[in-house]
């Protein structure tokens, strides 16, 4: 099973501010939807809470929420006490590629075991409180898969790469 991280990251590595995204990029959201559709997605509890209630769990893909809070309860999600348990759960369900979708702590804990990283590099330097971890790009091959300029609804340009760990 491939373990993949997927994130939208600003030039200063910011990925979030106060539980929200510091940008509004519809095409990137559709890219996220297309890439993760049908696959298990694993997220931290705070990340799950940041999704508007109307839209969670994310449709069309099994949602795993990682939390140590035994009282946490949500409809139609699988709750796991650790990331390892979440990954094991996906593997036991014959998943081919599981996606780690954040937030910052979850990314930090999984980047060392990731096989692929899908990163949307956003041409912006927003203030934030959540960051994507640094990683050595020399250890990865990269492929450009999407690029988008500024327009009426996208206030930042972005490029999306898939990084694959060199064997």
């Amino acid at each position: 099973m491939i373990i993949s991280l997927i994130a939208a990251v600003a030039a200063n590595n910011v990925i979030g501010v106060k539980g929200d995204l510091p940008w509004h990029l519809p095409v990137d959201l559709k890219f996220f939807s297309e890439t993760t559709k049908g696959h298990f997605v694993i997220m931290g509890r705070k990340n799950f809470d940041s999704i508007p209630e109307k839209y969670r769990p994310l449709p069309g893909r099994p949602n795993i929420v990682v939390t140590r809070n035994k009282d946490f309860n949500a409809t139609n999600v699988t709750v796991c006490a650790s990331i390892e348990a979440g990954i094991e759960h996906a593997k036991n369900h014959h998943e081919s590629e599981v996606f780690i979708i954040g937030g910052g702590d979850i990314y930090r804990q999984t980047i060392g075991i990731a096989d692929k990283i899908y990163i949307t590099h956003i041409d912006a330097h927003p203030e934030g409180d959540t960051y994507f971890p640094e990683f050595n790009k020399d250890e990865w091959t990269s492929e450009l898969i999407l690029e988008k300029g500024v327009d009426d609804v996208h206030n930042h340009a972005f490029t999306t790469f898939v990084y694959t760990r060199k064997s």
């Binding site: 519809p26 959201l29 559709k30 939807s33 559709k37």
Partner: peptide, 23 residues
Amino acid sequence: LNFGLTTECDNLLIERRNNTYLE
């Protein structure tokens, strides 16, 4: 073709051809 996650209301979609994504 992918219209999104239900979170957005816009006239955009993604077309995917293997590992190429087009708006």
